[in-house]
């Protein structure tokens, strides 16, 4: 987890944002991740490429087993090896290839530059230590500041994540906090070293809707304040629409579509994205149309293909209503179909 390490960096809660200057912060190219042995393995991530710009929120969306979590863990250098094998590709961050860093250097990156929060914050908090102790110990160890200083900063962070009565919360144990509070503490801890990228893996999935909305607001708020880039991993298309600037859709270990969020929801190119968008019940149909007729959800036939099976051609072909012979034989690559909108599908070429 995000542990601050770099010394002497001032912790500022308000940073003047610089939105016009767009630069690529992180670039993932042709990433292949296998699990198993060189002889016998399953492909969890298959040729994934994407980039994250400064100050932007990129959402990776997909169903369980699509490789979204594995991708995010690989950026953090947290793929257990064995059985994980990063077979191919590069992850460029600030001119460094994260895949070829020494353990020590990677640890520094993990603390200072990239931080991560998870779905269930309870698993990353130590149940027998108080919140304040956990937050300040980390800062003391990695920033070399005094206990008093660290405590002050921890309170500052709790304020930043809008926890009421932060002094009181500092003395509490994780189990005394509600799920929403815990997630706030995790976000505060992750941000305490001012990372450039915050990776959030389904951070709101375990929370109630009203609390989820609070956390999403908080993340948007913090992004604006600190100019942090966010990589948001989720399966929920509603949440994506609320938080993302750009969206990457993954299916069976591959990226299949990438676009700005409004573009993706309005003109989905890949039949899987289209299917997903039609398969979810939506409240807005009651709000917008006057005489909305409730339609049956468009269901996608079949299930996600087995990762034990090697897929020739397009991985979605067996479930795709438009599939032709070509789809079963040749694998489509990500191509720009409309400016700024890429998809891995043969259909636009027909």
């Amino acid at each position: 987890m995000g542990k601050p390490e770099k010394k002497g960096r001032a912790l500022t809660t308000v940073v003047a944002s610089n939105p016009t200057n767009i630069e690529t912060l992180l670039r993932v190219e042709n990433l292949d991740i296998l699990f198993g042995t060189a002889k016998q393995h399953v492909v969890a991530v298959d040729g994934v490429s994407f980039k994250i710009n400064t100050g932007e929120t990129l959402a990776i969306v997909g169903e369980s087993g699509c490789g979204k979590t594995v991708t995010s863990l690989s950026i953090m250098g947290l793929i257990p090896c064995p059985p994980g094998i990063i077979d191919n590709g590069s992850i460029q961050f600030n001119g460094k290839d994260l895949l070829h860093l020494k353990m020590e250097e990677m640890r520094k990156v993990r603390g200072n530059d990239i931080a991560m929060i998870f779905q269930e914050p309870m698993t990353s908090l130590n149940p027998v230590l108080t919140v304040g102790l956990q937050m300040s110990e980390a800062m003391m160890a990695h920033k070399g500041i005094s206990r008093k200083e660290a405590r002050k900063r921890a309170i500052e962070m709790l304020k930043l994540v809008q926890i009421p009565e932060p002094e009181k919360r500092m003395e509490q144990y994780p189990h005394q906090l509600s799920g929403g509070m815990r997630q706030r503490v995790m976000i505060g801890t992750a941000l305490s070293c001012e990372p450039k990228i915050l990776i959030a893996d389904e951070p709101t999935t375990a929370l109630d809707v009203t609390v989820q909305a609070q956390i999403l607001d908080l993340m948007n708020d913090i992004k604006a304040k600190l100019d942090t880039s966010i990589l948001f991993i989720t399966h929920d298309l509603g949440v994506v629409a609320e938080i993302a600037d750009r969206v990457l859709v993954m299916y069976a270990g591959r990226t299949i579509e990438e676009a700005l969020v409004t573009e993706l929801y309005e003109n989905p190119i890949h039949p899987y994205t289209e299917g997903l968008l039609r398969a979810i019940p939506r409240l807005d149909q009651y709000l917008s149309a006057d005489n909305s007729v409730k339609e049956a959800l468009k269901q996608m036939p079949g299930i996600v293909p087995s990762i034990y099976k090697k897929i020739e051609g397009c991985s979605f072909a067996p479930r795709c209503p438009y599939a032709r012979k070509q789809c079963g034989q040749e694998r489509p690559v990500m191509k720009e179909v409309v400016p700024g909108h890429r998809a891995a599908c043969w259909k636009p070429e027909w």
Partner: peptide, 19 residues
Amino acid sequence: IDNIIEDLGQIEFDERASA
């Protein structure tokens, strides 16, 4: 028809389980 198409996915799943 759904049933038949679903089977296509299901067959793969069966393979996974039996593996």
